[in-house]
Amino acid sequence: MNRRTFCAVTAVLSLTVASAAGAQQASWGPGADDTAFATMLQASFRNAGRVTVERLKQDETQAFCSDPQLATSKAAAKQAEAIEAANLASVKWPSDGKWLGDWKSGERIAQSGRGLTWTDSPTQASGGNCYNCHQIDAKEISHGTIGPSLHQYRKLKGGTEQVMRETWAKIYNSKSSNACSNMPRAGHMGILKETELQDIMALLLDPESPVNK
């Protein structure tokens, strides 16, 4: 890690501690203070492929959620709300006003877990990683269980404008409604493009999608 990243990591860590100051006890045990932790990070990672140590720099959401004892405490409830609000404010709504794209393309994107690792080529399109954690089309039995089942999504939720809006916000930036959701922020982090988000939306919300059959 270069010096700039190291300083940035240290800065983020001190920021987290500062914002938690007051009633909060330090969450980490003896020897795992911010300085020792930042020193360890600096000495323990290297650039590989196109992935550089710059990725160790946390944004405010990541820093907050990296201390789950704090993040889930009553004292931090206001901060969690502020983080959700900031993430919601970052959501870019579909530029052409269309919520739904092509569910068949959405299925392909949902199946793919590729992209953004140090072994992926820079031209490798990123997948949505959806089936890694969710049941979606029931025909796909190889699905993960970290997230809830999305089978029959439209049948259960309905296809109202509000459902469209909430679902878009969840996929674009999952932290807009749950500060420390396990789900990646597919739009916010640039993992998926707008048209790809529309295709994923269609997989969940198009009445013709097998998800809703």
Partner: peptide
Amino acid sequence: RQMYELGKRMFFFQAGPHD
């Protein structure tokens, strides 16, 4: 003990494009 505590902290450390 310090190594254990640093490991515990690392276990929860989020970063990168996927958080």
